[in-house]
């Protein structure tokens, strides 16, 4: 798995549970030195192992850890650069949903080596959508849960009111259902095109 994904997981665990917890997880997963390089590639099994060790140490289901990673990626100050990049996808939350299909291509445009699983949005009408995420690599890493957390946080970011539900895995794909109740429910967080740096 690409270092950026591993690094995101590391930063989430460190920022949320502290350096000590992270070092213990890294030790159990035999990651030495206890640090992922964002721009290097790592075996998929290592990513899965780190996730498993984290879930065990924290006493949480893996799905919950993954969902929290998704939320962290949008809402934590450490990940502000990523939040901004995501906000470029659409002017409002509906726009953002419509651009989800492009997400892997957008990621590849930024980092050609970053291979994300395919994402498909289906519009059921009546502000109801479902988002399907394909399986990535050798498996064991549920991007669907990450997406669930990420969508929840992005809805907040745009100030939209949504109901989200993880509908489970079918074959190699996971599905998240989105019911958009209100696009402009709250003011959301500010985003200006030229604010970076």
């Amino acid at each position: 798995m690409h270092g950026l994904i591993n690094r995101a997981m590391e930063l989430f665990l460190r920022d949320t549970y502290g350096q000590e917890a992270w070092e213990e997880i890294a030790r159990r997963a035999e990651l030495a030195p206890p640090e992922f390089e964002a721009m290097l590639d790592y075996p998929d099994a290592l990513t899965v192992d780190v996730l498993g060790q984290a879930a065990e140490l924290l006493g949480k289901p893996e799905a919950e850890v993954l969902e929290d990673i998704g939320t962290y990626l949008v809402s934590h100050p450490t990940a502000e650069a990523l939040r901004r990049l995501l906000r470029f996808s659409g002017a409002d939350f509906t726009d953002f949903l419509y651009s989800l299909d492009d997400l892997p291509a957008r990621a590849r445009l930024a980092v050609p080596q970053l291979d994300l699983p395919p994402v498909t949005l289906t519009d059921h009408g009546g502000q109801k959508f479902s988002v399907t995420v394909g399986q990535h690599g050798t498996g064991g890493f549920g991007f669907g849960h990450v997406l669930l957390g990420l969508l929840r946080a992005m809805a907040d970011d745009y100030g939209a009111l949504v109901l989200l539900e993880y509908k489970g895995r079918s074959g190699r794909a996971e599905t998240v259902e989105v019911q958009l109740l209100e696009t402009a429910f709250a003011s959301g967080r500010s985003f200006t095109l030229g604010a970076a740096g």
Binding site: L85, A110, G194
Partner: peptide, 27 residues
């Protein structure tokens, strides 16, 4: 000029270009 995405034509690639520039800086 404090522009936002609504200031560009929907088909304009300006916002994509801004995304790329920012992504490039991050990477």
């Amino acid at each position: 000029h404090d522009l936002c995405s609504a200031d560009f034509a929907v088909t304009d690639l300006a916002v994509e270009m801004l995304y790329l520039a920012e992504a490039k800086a991050v990477v």
